[in-house]
Amino acid sequence: MKFSIIIRCYNKLSIVKKCVEAAVNSTDSNTEIILVNNHPPYNDVTEYLNYLQHPRIKVLDPMSNIGNAKGFNFGAIHAKGEFLVNLDDDIIVPNNDWINAMSKPFDDFPDLAYVSLAWNAVNYSIKDQVTQGPEYKQNVVYNPDYTIYFVSIFTMFGCVMIKKNIWKKYFANVVQGDLYGIDGYYQQQANALGMKAGYLLSHEAEHLVRTKEADFLYGAYKVLYAFKLLKQDYPSWRSGKSKLTKNERQVLKQFGYKPFEVDKMERLLSIPL
């Protein structure tokens, strides 16, 4: 087995199904797909996972929501692939042999820790940087099979590939107790080891976090959690929250939410469950 895709399931059913179906349809028998039941606040997702049957899909249940990072580790322990893919359940991978393209930089760069498959908003931001000056252009490597952009500050973990032996040796124990925040911990470790990390610009994923079928408040919750503005799980936060603080509003806008979207979050929070 060459690849193991690990999806921690905590989103709405329509989004989880799209994510899983895209992963299945864009890969072959050389890829297994591991679904970690993170006990989402949506009963239909739990039912879907309980009854799902597919020869390449394995469903694992850690018995509670263990979050993003620990969920990935839980799946990785059971994975058979040489390469591990940490795939968020609201990311839709492209149908263009993306998984083999992601694996190729590891042959060309022995010091590569992991590579991320970015979605359009991230790619636009990177391409804007590249046009600003030579200090950014020198971080881009063009190859006939892929284009990679190396970063040292932060690599977002929507869809990330890492070799299992590298994960086991250097990264399996770096994650702390946060439900989210795997991005920062991995980047710190890669920098400490003097290893590279980057985005594959030649292959682009789709992010469903702000689509109509997404749970709008859950997307905001993940941002606030990642910025360490809260610590509780989503159901606890949703049931006990009725208004955003000034700092929370500012962080959401910095992340890219428009003022009218932040206002919409306030309105949704004000509605009792």
Rank of each mutant, 00 (worst) to 15 (best):
K2M: 14
I5E: 09
I5D: 07
I7V: 14
Y10C: 10
S14V: 13
S14C: 11
V16I: 14
V16N: 08
K18R: 15
V20P: 03
E21Q: 15
E21I: 09
E21A: 11
N25T: 12
D28S: 13
N30P: 00
I33H: 04
V36N: 04
N37V: 04
N38R: 00
N38M: 03
P41H: 09
P41F: 05
D44W: 00
V45Q: 03
T46F: 01
Y48L: 03
Y48T: 04
P55T: 08
I66F: 00
I66H: 00
G67M: 00
N73H: 11
A76G: 02
K80H: 12
F83W: 10
V85Q: 05
N86Q: 13
D88S: 14
I91F: 08
I92R: 05
I92S: 02
P94A: 10
M102I: 03
M102G: 03
K104T: 13
F106I: 05
D107L: 12
F109V: 08
D111Y: 10
L112R: 02
A113N: 02
V115W: 00
L117N: 07
W119A: 11
N120M: 10
V122N: 09
S125L: 09
S125N: 11
S125P: 02
I126S: 02
K127Q: 13
D128E: 14
Q129M: 12
Q129C: 12
V130E: 09
T131F: 06
G133Y: 05
P134Y: 10
E135F: 01
Y136V: 06
Y142Q: 13
Y146M: 07
T147Y: 02
I148P: 01
V151H: 04
M156Y: 10
F157S: 15
V174R: 07
Q176M: 09
G177V: 02
D178M: 09
D178H: 11
Y186F: 14
A190Y: 01
L193T: 07
L193S: 02
L193I: 08
G194V: 12
G198D: 03
L200E: 06
A205H: 07
A205E: 09
H207M: 10
V209M: 12
V209C: 14
K212I: 13
K212S: 15
A226R: 10
P235S: 01
S242D: 10
S242K: 15
K243R: 14
N247Q: 15
V251G: 07
K253S: 12
P259A: 12
D263T: 11
K264S: 11
M265I: 15
L268G: 04
S270K: 14
S270W: 05
I271F: 04
L273Q: 06
